[in-house]
Design a protein around this nucleic acid. Structure first.
Length: 241
DNA sequence: TTCCAGGCCC
DNA sequence: GGGCCTGGAA
C-alpha cells in the first residue's frame, strides 16, 4: 500500500471522498462486472498460443509483438521466432541484424532491437530469468507500464493491472462514459487494478482484452450480446467513443 | 490521399 | 505532449 491513506481516520468523520481521479463503483457493480466478464471469457475467450504457456520469455515475445501489431499477423511469427530463439540465451547470442530479419515483416523495427537488448540484459544481469518486479521490468527499454503489467499477470500470475486501448475503451464505456477517455488514464489505471478479483489477474486481464477486441469493439460494438448492457453507462451505444 | 491509432521513449 | 512506423479508416 502507498502510504498513510487513513491518517485522519479518527480525527474526522467526513465520509470518504473519492479523489478527483477515482471512479465510484455502485454497490455490487464490481462483482457483477467481474462475474459476467469471467463467465463470458470461459465461453468465448480466444485460444491463443501465448495462453498455452507461462514461460516468461514466451509471454514477453508475444507482448512485444502485440504492441503494435494485430493478433493474426503475430501468431505465425510468434511460432517462427520461438523456434529460432527458444530462450533468452539463444536470442541474446544472436546478432541483432539477424533478429531483425527474423522479425520481418512485422515492422516497427525498434521492437526487435529492444527485445534483443532485453534478452541480453536478462542473461547478463538476471541469470536468464526475467524479473517479476514492476520497477525492474520498467527499467528495460521496450517495457512500459502496460507490458510490465502483462508480464506480471500473464507470466507470474500476479494481480497486476494493465491498461491498453482495449481496456481503456471497455472501462471507460462501462464505468465512466463522459469526457475524454485518454485524459483519464490515472482513474482508468485505478479501475483496472480495483476490478481484478483477488488471485485471478491472469484470467481477468486476458478476458477484458478479449472482450474489448471482440465485443466492445471500437466501431460497431456488439451491444446486443453484451453481458454488461444492463449496467453499462454507454449502453445503448450512440456511435461515438 | 490524408489522418489517426497504438505502446513506447524522450 | 510529440515522434516513431505501419495498417486501416476516413
Amino acid at each position: 500500500m502507498p502510504t498513510n491513506t487513513r491518517a485522519t481516520k479518527s480525527a474526522s468523520r467526513r465520509k470518504k471522498q473519492p479523489s478527483k481521479s477515482s471512479v465510484p463503483l455502485a454497490p455490487g457493480q464490481k462483482r457483477r462486472f467481474q462475474n459476467r466478464l469471467l463467465k463470458w471469457y470461459k465461453e468465448h475467450g480466444r485460444d491463443l498460443p501465448w495462453r498455452r504457456t507461462s514461460d516468461p520469455y514466451h509471454i514477453l515475445v508475444s507482448e512485444v509483438m502485440l504492441q503494435q501489431t494485430q493478433v493474426d499477423r503475430v501468431i505465425p511469427k510468434y511460432h517462427e521466432f520461438l523456434e529460432r530463439y527458444p530462450s533468452f540465451t539463444e536470442l541474446a547470442d544472436a546478432p541483432v541484424a539477424e533478429v531483425k530479419q527474423t522479425w520481418y515483416p512485422l515492422g516497427y523495427n525498434i521492437r526487435p532491437e529492444r527485445l534483443h537488448s532485453i534478452a541480453r540484459e536478462t542473461v547478463a544481469r538476471y541469470g536468464g530469468q526475467l524479473p517479476n518486479d514492476a520497477d525492474e521490468l520498467l527499467s528495460f527499454k521496450g517495457i512500459g507500464r502496460y507490458t510490465a503489467g502483462a508480464i506480471r499477470s500473464f507470466a507470474f500470475n500476479e494481480d497486476a493491472p494493465i491498461l491498453d486501448t482495449n481496456v481503456i475503451r471497455v472501462l471507460y464505456r462501462v464505468f465512466i462514459a463522459e469526457g475524454d477517455p485518454k485524459g483519464q488514464k490515472s482513474a482508468l489505471w485505478e479501475l483496472s487494478e480495483a476490478l481484478i478479483p483477488r488471485g485471478k489477474g491472469y484470467d481477468f486481464n486476458q478476458a477484458i482484452m478479449d472482450f474489448g477486441a471482440t465485443v466492445c469493439t471500437a466501431r460497431n460494438p456488439y451491444c446486443l450480446l453484451c453481458p454488461m448492457k444492463t449496467f453499462c453507462k454507454t449502453y445503448p451505444f450512440d456511435g461515438k467513443k
